[in-house]
Design a protein around this nucleic acid. Structure first.
Length: 436
RNA sequence: CGGGGAGUGGCGCAGUCUGGUAGCGCAUCUGCUUUGGGAGCAGAGGGCCGCAGGUUCGAAUCCUGUCUCCCCGACCA
């Protein structure tokens, strides 16, 4: 993409409405604009980041055997009356009336609809287990939205729902999502710690929140210092029920809990290794058995011909929240420092002298080469001074900067700068595409 | 929802107490110079001062109402 033709209105000054660093940087880097409290427009750069986060989430969900669907955002109140949540959910649920005065709502989560759709297509125990997910916008009418996309009212979320025949199988489904989550967050450059968690309005008796440590986080969290070291999940076979359970039980032997689930005895056992911090929740997994299937009358026919009520779990990842959470974890004084997996572009191509014919020609050629090689490149071909281009590239956090100026070009080299470390090396111009 | 604060060009702010032709920095546009870390000079454009009433000869400024946004708390993916 040529910056001279792009839509990327970066801000030199921080808007007064933004308090936390990720919110400030998302506004300054032209990722988002607020349209009302807790509701944001996603500009091109932000949209690319969202798409990249989705890509990672989708890859790990698919790998874990989950199947993607897409449900409506606007739902009828009927299903929610069946489950009893229409009254239980409270004012957080955005309620809408259509022209026929029918009660509708903007979905804050989708257990009811997934359960109904599942029942509609599943009659036999042979149809189990299944795990179905979507990546879709949700709305929760928070009393006080804040911190930009970390706590918006409208947010993009991956939500998955598992259906199993018995408790052991359901726990295996839970464990599969558990390890998929560890892999998902690790792939984005985050160390997300699974912590014993409250189940809230979803209900149920087994739940973990995945927490990214950050001083601006909203939750107080408590954990064993072992969690500061990221865990390797590469060797675990998620299809092996016993091995997976053993791995996850091993992880959970190290204490980690949110404020509501603190355990004085377990904390005492940690001794000096106990840590306290603030954290951002980026995902949560729940097991809740027949909480929805029973009241909604969902059954499949078992091997013996008798009806069986499937047991469920649900699994959320805050996709739009992750954009903010990653920035909280990955930034410096100059701006955002994107992990490669989610960066809006991989390379910022910086022409230091747009008025110099040789520089422009070399840049145009490199731009074509990068594009042909399938590398996402943002080409700063604006008629600006070098300093302004460096500041912009640093602000928006592109992992690699390829810098071309008249001096280097005369010697046949360009400069390659790594955003994360600031490290720069001179590379022969023909070699630079290969280096990335 | 309880408590606090704020709405003035795109962004950041001053002006409000004490009513009298709406200002500054950044950004934008034009020209010239400049060109390896947010350039300099000169000129220009852009604002029913959140909205609605009221007081007054006259309101960004005073009064009443209302909307919106932000912060602390309670609540939450």
């Amino acid at each position: 993409m040529r910056l001279s033709r792009y839509f990327m209105p970066v801000l030199k000054e921080t808007p007064g409405e933004a308090q936390v660093i990720s919110h400030q940087l998302m506004l300054r880097a032209a990722m988002i604009r607020q349209t009302s409290a807790g509701i944001y427009a996603w500009l091109p750069l932000g949209r690319r980041v969202l798409a990249n986060i989705e890509k990672v989430v989708r890859r790990e969900q698919d790998r874990a055997g989950a199947i993607e669907v897409l449900m409506p955002t606007i739902q009828s109140a009927d299903l929610w009356r069946q489950s009893g949540r229409y009254d239980a959910y409270g004012p957080e649920m955005l309620r809408i009336t259509d022209r026929h005065d029918r009660d509708m709502l903007f979905s804050p989560t989708a257990e009811e609809l997934f359960t109904a759709i599942f029942q509609n297509g599943s009659k036999s125990y042979r149809d189990l287990p299944r795990n179905i997910y979507q990546i879709q916008w949700k709305f929760r009418d928070e009393v006080r939205p804040r911190f930009g996309v970390l706590r918006g009212r409208e947010f993009l979320m991956k939500d998955a729902y598992s259906f199993d025949l018995d408790y052991d199988a359901a726990v295996h489904s839970y464990n599969r999502m558990f390890i998929a989550y560890l892999r998902t967050f690790a792939a984005m450059g985050l160390n997300a710690i699974p912590m014993q968690a409250d189940t809230g309005p979803i209900g149920g008796d087994l739940s973990h929140e995945f927490i990214v440590l950050a001083p601006t986080g909203e939750s107080d969290v408590f954990y064993h210092e072992n969690w500061l070291r990221p865990r390797d999940t590469g060797h675990v076979d998620a299809d092996d029920r016993a091995a997976l359970a053993a791995f996850i039980n091993g992880l959970n032997a190290d204490y980690a809990a949110t404020d509501e689930k603190r355990d004085a005895a377990a904390e005492a056992a940690c001794g000096a290794a106990l840590r306290q911090s603030r954290g951002i929740e980026v995902g949560q997994v729940f097991y809740f058995g027949d909480k929805y299937t029973a009241p909604m009358g969902v059954t499949v026919q078992g091997p013996d011909g008798q009806p069986v009520t499937p047991l469920m779990g649900s699994y959320g990842i805050g996709v739009s929240r992750l954009a903010g959470a990653i920035i909280e974890a990955c930034h410096d004084e100059a701006g955002i420092v994107w992990p490669e997996a989610v960066a809006p572009f991989r390379v910022a191509l910086i022409n230091l002298r747009a008025d110099d014919g040789a520089c422009a020609a070399a840049c145009d050629r490199l731009y074509a080469d990068f594009t042909a090689a399938g590398v996402d490149v943002l080409y700063d071909d604006r008629d600006e001074r070098g300093g302004a281009k460096f500041a912009t590239a640093d602000l928006i956090g592109i992992p690699w900067q390829v810098i071309i100026g008249p001096k280097g070009l005369a010697a046949g080299v360009v400069e390659l700068k790594r955003r994360a470390t600031g490290e720069r090396v001179e590379v022969p111009i023909e070699a630079v595409v290969g280096r990335i």
